[in-house]
Each structure stands twice: as structure tokens, then as C-alpha cells.
Design a protein around this nucleic acid. Sequence first.
DNA 1: AATTACATGTAATCCGTTACATGATTGA
DNA 2: TCAATCATGTAACGGATTACATGTAATT
Lengths: 176, 176
Amino acid sequence: MDIPTLCLGILSLGDATGYEIKKMVAEGSFSFFSEASFGSIYPALTRLTEEGLISCRAEAQSKRPDKKIYSLTPAGRAELEAALANSPGPDRNRSDFLAALLFAEAVAPHRIEDLIDERIAHHGEQIEALEVMLGAEEGAASRFVLEYGIVMQKAAHDFLVKKKKGLIAGMMAPAS
Amino acid sequence: MDIPTLCLGILSLGDATGYEIKKMVAEGSFSFFSEASFGSIYPALTRLTEEGLISCRAEAQSKRPDKKIYSLTPAGRAELEAALANSPGPDRNRSDFLAALLFAEAVAPHRIEDLIDERIAHHGEQIEALEVMLGAEEGAASRFVLEYGIVMQKAAHDFLVKKKKGLIAGMMAPAS
DNA sequence: AATTACATGTAATCCGTTACATGATTGA
DNA sequence: TCAATCATGTAACGGATTACATGTAATT
């Protein structure tokens, strides 16, 4: 999903400014399956407005740039609908952690325990953060996505806790 | 993790050609946490050779380009070790499926059931493929990574199976 | 005193994919 | 006969990040 479509989708859930969209993808529940920076969001919003897929009303603010609040237009809604008619591509997961784990076996086996411990702690934090978000979320699909995230984080967390010792032992006795 | 480092890591597990590295990241157990195309792998290998981090021996073949088999040098091993000393960044998950689910609520709720059914089938296929790979894999870390993948795919699969009806019902009665 | 949050936008740059170029062999 | 596998490599292109540019206000 490209960034213009992502913006359309976010705006289908409610009006927002570019700044708010950035916050959603960087920190909100969107952050678990998408990314985007100002450098891609603002130009996308400008282009989408030119194309009539979204509309923009400016709200004056003293001593700050005007807030530009974007809304999905009927044309934009139709465009989003068309995009959703296609089956989504497969998930793309980049995990430096998994790569590091795999490569550490040959090159730095002493790192493995730390790598896993760090990751376990990380999943713990993520789970907490997601649970806080879930408490504040009301939409059925939004809650579903958040619950999905929690389940996945917990699965990873529990797997690492359960298998850590086995992995370390397995590497000490490599040719067993 | 950038592509040069990824190549270094793969070569730490054994010598390989550029073609083989591509196959590993596109189809092998690496495909679940990384991606790379010929257009990025071959130039990386060339550069790494110039820098002395890997070495290359050519194997002549009749009627085909020479096979260039790359090996990690001690300098390359040191470089990889240095890279692994840094904590890996967080996983980056791009999921058009989750995005589509979220956006479909507002714009195409009738699509949701299909979206989920497709995804359930997809996870089933992935689980089978991973289990086949696991049967052929012997390294402790490689098996660990594969098992991790299976656990995650199963978690997603089971979550979707269990929650599908609830989501659809929840959207029919939105303001409950 | 310094950093973060708010608020928008542009330009340079990087990284990587897609497509192109070449060509034999094997299996469906 | 057509597609896929094997095998390497380059160039054009696209998409997105990073850094830059500007400035206030609140928090630490």
C-alpha cells in the first residue's frame, strides 16, 4: 500500500491534519503495520487535494502555521474502495533481530543470550503499550487490529522465553 | 540491516554465489525477515570484494556465465561481528492486510470476510512451507528462526479463525 | 537551559526495485 | 512450445528518508 492510499485510508476514519497522520503512523495503532515520514505525507496530501480525492480547510492559528484539516471526498472514498477491492499483498517483515540471531551463531554466539533478553523486554513493553491503546479504542476494526498486535507480540514473547535455553544449549553441542 | 551486511551474514553460514543468495532471501528461511533483488545483491558483492570483506573464486561453466563463489574473509567476519555488536532495530512490519481490514470497516465492510478468509488460507500455506523447510534444516539457529516463523504464522492463523465472527458481528452493531 | 511538541513544507540524497541485456538447459 | 532454472550484470527510475528551513510554547 503506497502512502497516498494510506492517507486516504486514515482519512476514511476521520478528518486529520498531516501532522496528526504522521503521529498515527509513527506512534498510534498504525505504527504496527505501516510507516511514513513528513517528507512523504505532506506531498501526498497536496497531490491528493489537487486530484480532488481529499479536501482541505485551513484553520488559522496564532504564531503557528495554519492547521490544514483534510477530509475524504466522495471521489476519494471511491478511490479507496477500488484500492481495497484488490487482495492485499503478503506482509513484509524485516527483522534485524532474527537476522542477527542467525548470523550470531557463526560469528558471535556469546551475543545470543543478550539479543534474546533484550527482545523479550521489548515485547513486554510493546504489549503494555498496545493494551493501553486498546483501552482507549472503540471501533470494532481498530480493536481487532490492536488485539491482533497483542496476540502476535505475546506469541513472540512466549516463544523466546520458552526456547531461549534450548537454543543456547543447542549451540553449545552443535553436531548432536 | 542493509544488504551488504545481509550478504556478509549469509556468507558467514557458508560460501555462496550471488544467485544462491538471492534464492535464499527470496524463497529460503531468510525470506521471512528480509528481501533483496539481483539489482542490489550483485553490486553489493562487487563492492564487498573490492573492500576485501569477501573473496571470490570463479568456477568456469560451459555455456553459462562463470559461477562466482564468494567467501567471507577474516576482515569481513570482523565487520559482521562489529555490526552484530549493535542492538538490532525493532522489526518493521508492513501489512497491507491489516490496513485493508481497518479501512474496509468504513468503506467496504462486505469485503472483510473475504479478506480474512484469504488470509487464513495464506497462513495455512505458509505454515506448511515452513514445516517442510524445518524438516530439512539442521543448524540450531536456523531451526530456531524457522520455528519462530511457524509459531508466528500459527498465532495469526488461530487468531483470525477465532475472532472472525466476532469482528463481523461487531461491525454490524457498531455503536453497541 | 534544553528538549519536546506543535505545524508545514522543500530539496538533496540514498537505497533499492524493475526492466533490460544475454543465453543455454530442462521440465511441463 | 513455453515457462522456469541457472547465471551475471547494468541503467533507469521511483519512492521514501534525512536534513534543511522557520518559529512558538510548554515541559523538564
